[in-house]
Simulated assay, not measured.
Amino acid sequence: MDASGVEVTGRAQRAAWRERSVPAVERVRPGLWSVPVPMGGPLRWVNAHVLELAGGGLGLVDTGWDADDSWAALCAGLAGIGAGVRDVRGVLVTHMHMDHVGLAGRVREASGAWVAMHPADARDLTAFTARSPEESTEVEVAFLVGLGAPEPDARADAGTPEERARWRRLALPDRLLEDGDRADLPGWSLRAVHTPGHTAGHLCFADEATGLFFAGDHVLPRISPNVSTHAGGAADPLRDYLSSLERVAGEEAGEVLPGHEWRFRGLAGRARELRAHHERRLAELLAAVRAHPGSTPWDLAAHLTWSRPWSQYERRMRIFAVTETDAHLRLLVTRGLVVGDGARVPRYAAAHLR
């Protein structure tokens, strides 16, 4: 256990992370397994959690990325516990991102399972999938230009309509879960906990019988989840996220099962660490605004500390960085520390406080 009170319980998961591999399927508790579903990028895999249901069948919390190798891994993982996709009765989606909802449609087609998510993410996902790939691309380009990106850079980062075509296959939900609702998974007492920030409709699930807390991407043990702005999204997503962290810190969670990385104990301690991280980030950004008044979010992102040199950022990584910078700027505005000029492409300066 570290100084914050966080204790690693998913030791095999963390060992695989350090070895740059993917862990094996793991029995977490009687009737509960963690199935790692590989994905591209630095996160490497998604933890799909499989729950054995009273009376037969399985429930899933998240599914993994929509790719053939991810589908094969999910099917193999279920086979490894003596089951199959056809046994799935319901899918709980913590949030609408591709790596969590991506395979839900294939699971539903193979099993007839229902898919559930929060209404806010259902609305955003419906709007997103309703756009043509061409329209979706133009919406993102326009949003990035509105944050100060030169149009050629915005187009290079947004990608092509062909690359976006598969996003229209994402499964829309059959059921909606509001905060406090109980998931229809017999033998479990999963309560939906609305935790907006990473997405507007992000859900965690607290099982009151076992003390397990399925955290999705809201609280991860090592990294800070991306909190970003997007076209048509929440006005102040970082404020929403910090409020959600305050809320989950009060949950009586015996063990946290996140969507990435490894299981751990110490939800309140990890929530404190994440809040402190964002306060440091806000202070760094405020210093950048003071040093570079009249800058756009695109400009300011280049003056912040990232995991690698800013010149190496491109495509989705640069989009995440700039939109995360924008989210932090909006909270500084809310706190009265920074002001924007109100232009179509806003530029920011430090507020003159009395």
Rank of each mutant, 00 (worst) to 15 (best):
Trp45Ala: 13
Gly31Asp: 11
Asp99Ile: 05
Ala15His: 14
Leu332Phe: 09
Ala76Lys: 09
Val338His: 06
Ala288His: 12
His292Phe: 14
Pro346Tyr: 02
Gly64Met: 04
Arg222Cys: 03
Val333Glu: 15
Glu252Lys: 14
Ala3Lys: 07
Pro237Asn: 02
Thr63Val: 03
Glu324Ile: 00
Leu147Tyr: 03
Arg265Val: 09
Ser111Gln: 06
Tyr241Thr: 00
Leu58Met: 01
Glu138Phe: 00
Pro196Val: 00
Pro221Asn: 08
Gly159Ile: 06
Asp157Met: 05
Ala142Gln: 05
Pro23Val: 01
Gly232Pro: 11
Leu331Ser: 11
Leu58Trp: 05
Gly31Phe: 11
Gly105Asp: 12
Leu300Lys: 11
Tyr313Pro: 05
Arg344Glu: 15
Arg330Gly: 01
Met317Thr: 13
Leu212Phe: 03
Thr229Ser: 10
Pro38Leu: 07
Met117Arg: 02
Arg169Cys: 10
Gly57Gln: 07
Gly112Cys: 03
Arg265Leu: 09
Thr305Ile: 07
Arg89Ile: 02
Ser111Gly: 03
Leu147Cys: 02
Asp326Trp: 09
Arg308Thr: 03
Val88Ala: 07
Arg272Phe: 00
Gly64Pro: 03
Thr229Cys: 14
His352Gly: 04
Ile81Leu: 15
Arg344Tyr: 01
Leu125Ser: 01
Val193Glu: 07
Ala327Trp: 06
Gly55His: 10
Asp179Trp: 04
Gly59Phe: 08
